[in-house]
Amino acid sequence: MRTMLKIVPLLALFGLPLAYADTVDDLLKGYQAQGASNFSAEKGQTMWTQKFNPPGSDRARSCALCHGENLKLTGKHAKTGKPIEPLAPSVNPKRLADAAEIEKWFKRNCTWTVGRECTPQEKGDFLSYLRKQ
C-alpha cells in the first residue's frame, strides 16, 4: 500500500508528458503516411515568425502575431485581445495532448495566417518545434 501511495503521484507526474508524446508521435506518423519526409524543428521555428499577407489581411500575419515569439509566455488574440495560454508544453501540459484539438487549430489558424491549410510536412515541422518548447 505504501509503495502504491508513492507510485500514484509519480504516474500522475509523468503521465501527462507521456500522453502528449504519444499523441504527437502518432500525428507525425500519420503525416509521413500522407507523404511527408523527415521533420525539422528548425524549419518549424523559421516558419513561426515568417510573415504572410493572405487576401483580406490588413497587416502581415504570423504565428507569433498572436502567440508571441516566446512560446512560454501568454499570447494575445490579434483582433479581440483575449489572452492565449502559452503553447509550450513545458509550461502548459494541456498543450499537444489532444489530436483532434491540434488538427482543429491547424486548420483554423493556418487558413487565417497563411491563407491556406498547412501541408503535412509543415504541420510535422511545427509539432517537432513545439514539443521541444
Binding site: G56, K79, K104, K107, R108, T111, W112
Partner: peptide
C-alpha cells in the same frame, strides 16, 4: 466568421 474560418466539424 468576421474574416476567419472556424472549421468546426
Amino acid at each position: 466568421h468576421f474574416g476567419e474560418s472556424l472549421g468546426l466539424d
